[in-house]
């Protein structure tokens, strides 16, 4: 599953822009992940601070 490290996330929304299934939503400082997430990992790759990780 996709995990968000809330201590690292700087809530910039870059991940939301690349998500192919529209599974991410930035609510001010809180990144929400919906059940639409296909765990493709594109968001983790571009996260400037490395706050996202797809874990088995």
């Amino acid at each position: 599953m996709l995990t968000v490290n809330r201590y690292k996330c700087c809530y910039c929304g870059a991940c939301v822009g690349v998500c192919p299934t529209c599974a991410l939503e930035l609510v001010e400082t809180w990144l929400e992940v919906s059940t639409e997430c296909k765990e493709c990992g594109l968001c983790a790759k571009i996260c400037p601070v490395g706050a996202l990780e797809v874990r088995a």
Binding site: G13, V16, G17, K45
Partner: peptide
């Protein structure tokens, strides 16, 4: 609504960014 835009996607305009 910026880089994380949803309005376009809701209206059927694909704004998803490739890496």
């Amino acid at each position: 609504d910026g880089v994380e835009s949803k309005v376009g996607r809701w209206a059927g305009i694909d704004t998803t960014l490739k890496l």
